[in-house]
Write a protein that binds this DNA or RNA. Structure first.
Length: 701
RNA sequence: GCGUUCAUAGCUCAGAUGGAUAGAGCAACAGCCUUCUAAGCUGUGGGUCGCAGGUUCGAAUCCUGCUGGACGCACCA
């Protein structure tokens, strides 16, 4: 593929071998090839600092001189694709033949299409990604967006590279907050049940806020919540299976399911928890509040309603999961974990609670409370083991905020202990087997907090309101733009008509503009329903693009200082800038009216000449495009979508410069043909990245 | 107190794993729409890379100390 780098590799291997009598492997040679920081220095280089083990000793400048002379003497070996070699300080810089470089790159993009830039690993992995994971008792706020978007993007990037990805939403559907929610439901007599049916999440949020407020002044709330939760937990754990049994069963079920279809088996926990057909109503309140079964059903209903709501929100921003899991499911087995760890001596009792001491971490890891109830660390152990049984993952990524770093290092540490002490586990081959496989496969992909995020007056920001705010801003801008373009056009027409009436030439302009006018939505009239719809959809996509890009443009670990003005500005380093660039290319391509479909056949004849005025600008674009594979690679390596954000911004910027400085319409066929391939290449790469970043692509803005 | 992490232009951030002259975008100022979408492009100003040491041919990047911020540290998740 990369003939330049390959050629250079062979070149340096031969030089070192023949001139210095030292054997160098290709991978070693590859490490010697660097990229100069500035295009004016060249395209590839060797730095004398790195050549010392290969027979080029002495002061860097001297060593560089030595190497330079050899390179020059043997330049003939690479002269077919390299233009020249220069020495500058300690660096030997190589300049590619740009016309060859450009057509190589463009050819490859046109041939590979949306596959371009794929960084195929030696061995594809099964990667489980745990992200978003909202708490059901709380509303879906903007805080969840970062995890959601980073997780989804990483999932797409891994899948793009050919890994098998399993996207998991681990719902917080368990814990004392449910006791509170049930308490609220049972305490307040004025619940509007018809409203509950219409907008359950809103009502639940109302209950949530109200009970937390009352809790401040009423001590009985907490007690009641605890009791109700205990009732719930007890009801759930009645008739439970052993963890061993469960592990064996899910493995069989899951693998059977996978065999039968390409897609992962739909074992959403929904089915297991499907609610009974008992309506929420005043009449049934006694049942829901007075019996254990009733509370369990109430919990199921809350859970089901919340999941439906989440799904609706996810769908609106293009997010989807392969599996919804819940803590409740794992809570069932956390006692088994406690027993196994205690029995085998990996855990001990301290102050009544069960703890594990993890090497290198001072804080003890609590796996069970002194009253015997579970903690989320033990539930996470259960979950990881279950997932190993279900998915047989090579790697599992937790996309969770960095404030939970300690929790995950404890969790990971415990799996290290489980692996080392597997022999001490007494019964059950399933648990022993799966638990000891996990060490080293877990990754915490942490991200920074969003600081200063609040509504202009309030505190918690709902995701939907956030997006709506961005959408409105986009619509405002869109309407403004439509108006400006109409005004300009009518000014043009008036002007031309005036000229015509004065006998000046201008007929062509007039007819052209009249044509154009028919394309513009009826300027003076109210926009039709269809047009309104169009404006709505466009501004929605722009809004979503702005919001999502805002979370993906900086490196994950940095805390973001939230600023409305930054999010609502669609200029510069923003999602809309990228969307705009794509739609510009789309528009240009359609105006060029060339047949894109025969590009592949024409690929051999793309030619870019040094004498063309746009040559250097095209080269910059090609060079950027060429870097996609490296960018994708490091995005995976670092679990960092922002590598791609920056990459896309740079590419868009190069393109927009080109667009500004060079016109294509009206140029001769051969000139245009090659450039169409270039345009298609830019668009292909930008669209790929937008897809990987979960940002909607717009044909027209 | 212990631990993790961060500090780069007025603001928001990049900086390819220690290499050539530290870069963008906002904001400010000055320009570019009769010509492919001005959500664009061009130019100007703006920096002791928090401070002080150290490691070496070479440091924004690695080490130590200090200052300042964020987060976490026993029965919440």
């Amino acid at each position: 593929m990369d003939i330049f780098k390959e050629t250079l590799k062979t070149f340096i291997v031969n030089i070192i071998k023949e001139e210095k009598k030292i054997d160098v492997s290709k991978p070693q040679a590859e490490k010697l090839i660097k990229n100069p920081p500035d295009d004016s220095f060249g395209d590839y280089c060797f730095a004398a600092y790195y050549m010392q083990n290969y027979g080029f000793q002495g002061k860097p400048e001297t060593a560089a001189g030595d190497l330079y002379n050899l390179c020059i003497r043997r330049f003939g070996e690479i002269a077919d694709i390299f233009d020249k070699i220069e020495i500058k300080g300690a660096y030997i810089n190589f300049f590619v033949k740009r016309e060859i470089f450009i057509s190589e790159v463009v050819k490859e993009v046109v041939d590979s299409g949306s596959d371009y830039g794929r960084d195929i690993p030696e061995k594809p992995l099964t990667v489980a990604v745990d992200f978003s994971s909202p708490n059901i008792a709380k509303p879906f706020g903007v805080g969840h967006l970062r995890s959601t978007v980073i997780g989804m993007s990483l999932s797409k990037i891994y899948a793009f590279c050919g890994h098998k990805v399993i996207k998991i939403n681990y719902l917080g559907d368990f814990g004392t907050q449910f006791g509170k929610l049930i308490t609220a439901f049972c305490r307040y007599g004025d619940i509007n049940f018809s409203e509950f049916e219409k907008d359950p999440v809103k009502v639940l949020y109302g209950l949530y806020v109200r009970i937390h407020k009352d809790e401040q002044t009423d001590a009985t709330v907490e007690e009641e919540a605890k009791n109700r939760f205990k009732t719930l937990e007890d009801f759930m754990s009645a008739n439970k299976r052993s963890f061993e049994e469960y592990l064996g069963a899910i493995n069989v079920v899951h693998n059977a399911g996978v065999k039968n279809s390409d897609k992962a088996a739909p074992t959403e926990t929904d089915a297991a928890y499907a609610s009974e057909n008992i309506k929420l109503s005043v009449e049934n309140k006694n049942f829901f509040c007075g019996t254990a079964e009733g509370q369990y059903n109430l919990w199921k209903i809350f859970r089901k309603l919340s999941i439906e709501e989440f799904k609706r929100i996810y769908k609106s921003i293009g997010i989807e999961f392969d599996f919804y899991e819940g803590e409740a499911e794992s809570a069932e087995f956390s006692k088994d974990i406690k027993e196994i760890l205690l029995e085998s001596g990996m855990a001990e009792i301290s102050e009544g609670a069960a703890i594990v001491n993890v090497k290198g971490i001072k804080a003890p890891a609590l796996i069970a409370k002194s009253d015997g109830t579970s903690l989320y660390l033990s539930r996470d152990i259960v979950t990881a083991v279950s997932r190993m049984a279900k998915y047989n993952f090579d790697k599992m990524i937790y996309v969770v905020g960095s404030e939970q770093a300690l929790h995950f290092s404890q969790l990971f540490g415990i799996f290290g202990i489980l692996k080392e002490n597997a022999e001490k586990i007494k019964d059950g081959k399933n648990f022993k087997h799966y638990a000891s496989m996990i060490d080293g496969r877990l990754v915490h992909v942490k991200f920074g907090r969003i600081i200063g995020m609040s509504t202009r007056k309030g505190n918690l920001v709902f995701l939907e309101d956030y997006i709506e705010e961005a959408r409105l801003k986009a619509q405002e801008k869109l309407e403004e733009r439509l108006k400006v373009s109409e005004d300009n056009l009518s000014a043009e027409i008036n002007d031309a008509v005036k000229k015509l009436s004065e006998g000046i030439e201008g007929l062509e302009t007039v007819t052209e503009n009249v044509e154009k006018q028919s394309l513009i939505p009826e300027s003076k009239k109210e926009p039709s329903e269809k047009e309104k719809e169009q404006i709505y959809l466009t501004s929605l996509k722009v809004g979503i693009g702005a919001v999502i890009f805002n979370d993906l443009k900086t490196r994950r670990t940095t805390d973001v200082n939230f600023n409305w003005d930054n999010v609502l500005s669609f200029e510069g380093q923003t999602g809309p800038y990228l969307q705009y660039t794509v739609s510009r290319i789309t528009s240009l391509l359609s105006r060029l009216k060339e047949n894109e479909t025969d590009l592949k056949n024409a690929a051999q004849s793309f030619s870019f000449s040094k004498n063309d005025t746009d040559f250097d600008d095209i080269f910059l674009i090609a060079k950027q495009i060429y870097g996609l594979k490296t960018a994708v690679h490091s995005a995976v390596e670092q679990n960092e979508p922002s590598v791609l954000s920056s990459f896309a911004l740079d590419l868009a910027s190069y393109f927009n410069k080109y667009y500004q400085n060079h016109r294509l319409i009206g140029r001769e066929h051969d000139y245009v043909k090659s450039r169409i391939a270039m345009l298609v290449s830019v668009k292909t790469v930008l669209v790929s990245i937008l897809n990987l970043l979960c940002i909607p692509v717009l044909e027209k803005m």
